[in-house]
């Protein structure tokens, strides 16, 4: 390869010509940068899926960390993925505070079909009808016998359930004994007194 100096030497001896290069004294104009800062605006895409790493449980100092992302120990946390939603300012709806209210209902029909419940008051009976071969188990009263529609013994609670006829005009009361007749057939029997 012929170098530039060798080329110049042959130019001068054989051609008498010397290649002259001009050098411009002017310096290259400096590049000017504006100090004004521009702001790039990017719109948030509502539908964009962005991975969000969240820790539902942190166990302590078991976490390794790097500059760009946080890594959690897989044993100590659950990683979830969720969409980021655009936050929009909602309108605050004023709620009026109203005074507490209640409504009254007529339940007379329902109440009139409920039975009255009588407890066994035998322990308070000082005088009891005694008959040979009978054992008194309970005494229920006062009961308006002529107004009774139905009587049921609640064996679990040992109480007597009474359904009265609401149209009845009777007020004469009696007591109802429950007794057991001793013998081969120990039947339970009722007796009004």
């Amino acid at each position: 390869m012929i170098t530039k100096d060798v080329k110049d030497y042959f130019y001068r001896h054989f051609l008498g010509v010397l290649k002259v290069n001009s050098v411009s004294p002017e310096l290259a104009s400096p590049q000017i940068f504006s100090q004004k800062r521009g702001v790039e605006v990017h719109s948030v895409q509502a539908g964009a899926r962005i991975k969000v790493v969240s820790a539902s449980r942190l166990s302590g100092g078991d976490m390794s960390r790097s500059v760009r992302e946080v890594k959690f120990s897989s044993q100590s946390v659950k990683v979830k993925e969720a969409k980021i939603k655009r936050y929009t300012l909602g309108k605050a709806l004023p709620r009026a505070f109203s005074k507490l209210k209640t409504k009254t209902h007529n339940g007379t029909k329902q109440a009139s079909v409920l039975p009255q419940e009588r407890a066994n008051r035998l322990q308070w009976q000082l005088t009891r009808p005694k008959k040979e071969g009978e054992m008194i188990l309970a005494w229920f009263g006062p009961i308006v016998e002529d107004a009774v529609v139905k009587l049921t013994l609640n064996k679990r609670r040992g109480t007597l359930l009474i359904w009265y006829n609401p149209q009845s005009r009777h007020f004469d009361v009696k007591g109802l004994y429950l007794y057991r007749r001793m013998g081969i057939k120990e039947n339970l029997e009722w007796r009004w007194m």
Binding site: L100, T102, H105, N106, G107, Y164, P166, F171
Partner: peptide, 22 residues
Amino acid sequence: AALAVDFRGIPICFYYTDPIKP
């Protein structure tokens, strides 16, 4: 609730309110 009964315990009227939970 309010229950009015005659002297036999037979209901004359029964009224009850809605439950209120403040």
